[in-house]
């Protein structure tokens, strides 16, 4: 339903950020996020950064399993 891609913020100006995913760059809307800075990781969907994220799915999933 919602293909998302995690990407690193390269630059932000007004409500537009340039993000990088393994060397592929695109302008995306940053209007839904505050205080975005270069180096932050975001989840991008349909040309909009929808959430500020951490980039480590392993650590998080591992921690969930530790709780079981």
């Amino acid at each position: 339903m919602c293909v998302g891609l995690s990407a690193k913020v390269v630059s932000v100006k007004d409500d537009v950020a340039i993000v990088d995913a393994s060397g592929a760059r695109r302008k995306v809307s940053a209007a839904l996020l505050s205080d975005l800075e270069p180096g932050d990781f975001v989840m991008v969907h349909a040309g909009t950064a929808i959430a500020k994220i951490t980039d480590d799915d392993e650590e998080e999933s591992g921690a969930l399993l530790d709780l079981l």
Binding site: M1, C2, H45, A46, T48, I50
Partner: peptide, 9 residues
Amino acid sequence: VGFETTTPS
């Protein structure tokens, strides 16, 4: 089209 994720765009 789309759900809550896509509508804001």
